[in-house]
Amino acid sequence: MKTGSSLEDRLQKLFRSQKLGVLATQQKENPYTNLIAFACSDDLRQIVFATAKTTRKYENMISNSSVSFFIDNRSNKAADFRKAMGATAVGSVRQIRKNKNSTMMKRYLQKHPQLASFLVSRSCAFLCIDVKSIYVVERFQNVIEVHLD
């Protein structure tokens, strides 16, 4: 029997393969979700994204830095129930400086070159989630927690 790929490999592949994910924020009793374009570090400890400062999610994050971020590789077919993998990264978010030479900004723009002008806009914030844990769901019911700290 062939040895299956490790969880770490599968997770990295998932984060590399997806361009968009769902960011969950909240303020007081009001939860909120958005689809965002992201990039991440190889060790999956940092996830970066950009958002306009006038948005509800930005407001929420200023008020409460605890966020979760969900990505998955579903194809909207029945096989997804078993074949798709979903991961929820949980951590706290902080605003970071836009530095064209920083690894994370380079990585973000390499993945989303069409967002370059959006990112450099003064009204746009560049944010980083410092991931504490990732909850991975595979094959419908298999749940593994990966704690990074």
Binding site: L7, E8, Y135, R139, F140, Q141, N142, V143, I144, E145, V146, H147, L148
Partner: peptide
């Protein structure tokens, strides 16, 4: 173990 802690929550 790897450098991160992997903890199962649900195994199928």
């Amino acid at each position: 173990g790897s450098k991160v802690t992997v903890r199962p929550r649900q195994l199928t």
